[in-house]
Computed example of a mutant assay.
Amino acid sequence: MATIPMTAAADRTLAAAAAILGYAIIIGFTDNFVRVIAADAGLWQFHALRGVMAMAILGVAARPLGLRLAPRNLRAVAGRSLIHGCAMLIYFGCLAFLPVATVAAGLFTAPIFVLLISRFAFGHAVGPYRIAAVLIGFLGVILVLGPASGERIGAATVLPVAAGALYALGNLATREWCAGETAETLLAGFFVTLGLFGVIGMIALALWPVPVPEGAAGFVLRGATVPTGPFLFWTFVQAGGSLIGVGLMIRAYQIAAASRVAIFEYVILPASALWSYLLWAEVVSPRAALGMGLIFLAGLIIVLRRR
């Protein structure tokens, strides 16, 4: 049997693409039920309870599966978890006052920031094909976001774009700072950080209560409430699904260059749209479908131009 070159073993682009596809399918399904969770509870209680559930699942699975949860470099794992946690807080928070398409388009500026940070902070070479792929993928996001969805790009996209920048930095940190960590270690750090954010948010809202709109409109402003059955069930589904999905995403960034893996994450948009159609009979417009086609094209370019 031929020996696999070290560069191919260290940077397995196709394996990373498969991991990201699994991540998109799982997260696309679970995130479609955030609307159900938001109707009964708040963002902070959701993150706190999901963090507890996720750590309980990891704790039970650690010994039989031989998982190592303790970090080798606590500072690196904590820094990476803080960056990704802040990105997700902004992302979920924006969903309270911006359409999902607007928030997603802002978040998916992350590959642009990955390229910029890779080039200017870490000195990585970025070829013209990867630059072209990112621009094609971002054009696809713009088409998904455009007039056919009833929204325009404006000042309100600043926060989602900030989430995209933090998300990109966290993805780079996964490879640059945490290459020696296991996927389960990074998962634990991610959920512990979001859980702590949730506890802090609930305490703050208990000390300084504010008027809370009914239903999903009060998602960000709602403090701790008596958990309902649907909230508990779908939060548990979120915890389990996120463990598997985010674990696959982390693994992808560990085995391939961040500037390549980032482009594959665009697939979460069509995956979410497909689940929205299957679950809620929501249909995308022809313009949005074209944008999703460009997103797939961008990922294909990266695969064909891999080393």
Rank of each mutant, 00 (worst) to 15 (best):
G245H: 07
V220Y: 05
P270M: 09
H47C: 13
I131K: 01
I301Q: 10
L186S: 14
L49K: 07
A87E: 08
Y277M: 10
V212L: 07
A281C: 09
E265C: 01
P227W: 07
A105C: 11
T185K: 02
V212P: 09
I250G: 11
V141T: 14
I112S: 11
T30G: 14
M53H: 00
R50F: 01
A39F: 14
L21A: 14
Y23F: 08
G170D: 00
L139V: 09
L69H: 13
V246A: 15
T109F: 04
G201A: 11
E181T: 02
L82S: 13
I301L: 11
G245E: 14
T102R: 08
F29R: 10
R68M: 10
R306T: 08
L196N: 01
I37F: 00
I90A: 14
A24H: 02
G85T: 00
A289F: 11
L269F: 06
F231Q: 11
C86V: 15
N73V: 10
A256R: 06
G229I: 15
L232N: 07
Y167T: 12
P99K: 09
A48Y: 07
V210I: 12
V267T: 11
V100D: 06
M292F: 02
T193R: 05
F46N: 00
T30L: 15
G66H: 01
A156R: 08
A133E: 11
L186C: 14
T228A: 05
Q254F: 14
W280Q: 01
A256T: 08
A41W: 12
G247W: 06
P160A: 09
A204N: 05
R251Q: 14
S276F: 10
L82Q: 10
A288T: 12
G79F: 05
Q254H: 11
T235Y: 05
F138T: 04
V100T: 05
D40R: 02
L115A: 09
P99S: 10
W280N: 07
L279H: 11
I302T: 15
N171F: 02
L135C: 08
I203D: 15
A162T: 15
F296V: 03
I268H: 10
P270I: 01
L232S: 02
L207T: 09
P111K: 00
E151K: 08
M292H: 06
W44N: 03
A16I: 05
A183G: 02
Y23E: 06
V144W: 04
P227A: 00
V141Q: 09
I83F: 08
I83Q: 03
L169C: 09
E181F: 01
A76E: 06
